[in-house]
Nucleic acid binder design. Structure first.
Lengths: 207, 207
DNA sequence: ATCCGGCTTGACCAATCGGTCAAGAATAAT
DNA sequence: ATTATTCTTGACCGATTGGTCAAGCCGGAT
């Protein structure tokens, strides 16, 4: 069987492009309406293609959703991975928080997509949470703990501190409607960033 | 027209009881699946009644949802209302944070219900956010600002500080799945409460 | 130019949804 | 006991949904 062309494993350019278009459209729709609230027709319309064509690239609605989660999952934790045990603690944490604020601000849709998934019990990514995520956080918590032990940082529970960073930074993306409603205006990144840094870090200077 | 019995404005006991049962069932379903994800049949089944009977008490699915939001909305902000300008700042804030943690822990479903609503743009309660909520927060932000001006509290943006309290406390209810997955165990209220108080308040002691 | 396999879609389907209706069962008022 | 009102439900409906199918389109390799 010479030159046996196995199924089109390698994506053609059209496939690559259309999958990209679909994922982009799907992020819009899923982040706005959640998994069940979103319809395949809506995504297809936003991607400028027919529903059967969309389902030619992703056979089930769920496949798009999962692909979307996985596609962003890695990027999302990159800043935490870069937390450097050898750097200056307050500088490292300050940088991490700033980057997270900027990411939430730049891509609130992805933030809401995850928030919604976790809010509903994370049925699709439970294994990821208990696996790679847990491992990474445990690792970085140890880094923070080491800083504390070395007297470079005031004592704080590293896990809960990371949770605090996540919750506060994501709040500005996930609850933007509420933030804007309370402030009576559109929140700007700069002032929020500054305030968050002060609130989270001021108490951490070593004595 | 003597004794003109106007429509049954006063609820009968059966009405009061069944509405209660329905709202309880609806909280379960809506908090688990969101507004669009929830079905009237599911709610009716959980309330042990037929769908038409449920719709006899709440004519539209949306009515149950809105009633549920309004029913809890007032209670939810009660602790913030009690923030006393005349009390000791750190004591007042510490108490507020503790109570919020306890509320989120005791009623995570209600917390998730609101989170989901806001996450999706708060289409049903936008007016509430821009009205009563904004007014209350503005008022309490002024209280915090006064404490700062009096030198009783280290300077902090009051609005963003309140946002930080909300986001961190609600995180343990809304993202419980993630918290538990990362910690590898069910989080207990006590230690989370202690950690959150330290993280949020340590930097606020006046110089 | 032709031909093959990837690409695209209108029409369609079964399942599920929110909501209606008419008719009976239970309760309260007299 | 009779009547009026409230309560309850099986059967049903139109709309929407995720997904299928068969048929054509189109571009690149020869």
């Amino acid at each position: 069987m010479p030159h046996a062309k196995t199924k089109p494993i390698v994506n053609t350019r059209i496939q690559a492009r259309n999958k990209e278009v679909i994922l982009e459209a799907a992020l819009d729709v899923f982040s706005a309406s959640g998994f069940r609230g979103a319809t395949v027709d809506q995504i297809a319309a936003k991607a400028n293609m027919s529903k059967p064509n969309l389902l030619y690239y992703f056979r089930r609605k769920e496949d798009i959703y999962v692909a979307l989660l996985e596609h962003t999952l890695t990027d999302w934790l990159e800043p935490l991975r870069k937390l450097d045990a050898g750097g200056d603690p307050l500088r490292e944490l300050s940088h991490y928080i700033s980057v997270k604020m900027e990411m939430s601000n730049a891509n609130p849709k992805a933030s809401r997509l995850f928030a919604n998934e976790i809010l509903h019990g994370a049925p699709m990514i439970e294994k990821y949470l208990k696996g790679p995520l847990r491992q990474l956080v445990t690792e970085k918590a140890a880094v923070i703990q080491a800083w504390i032990a070395a007297g470079q940082l005031a004592p704080v529970d590293p896990f809960h501190f990371i949770f605090a960073i996540w919750s506060v930074t994501q709040h500005y993306a996930d609850f933007a409607v509420q933030v804007d409603a309370v402030l009576g205006r559109r929140e700007d990144l700069r002032s929020a960033q500054k305030a968050v840094l002060e609130i989270l870090l001021r108490g951490l200077r070593p004595v």
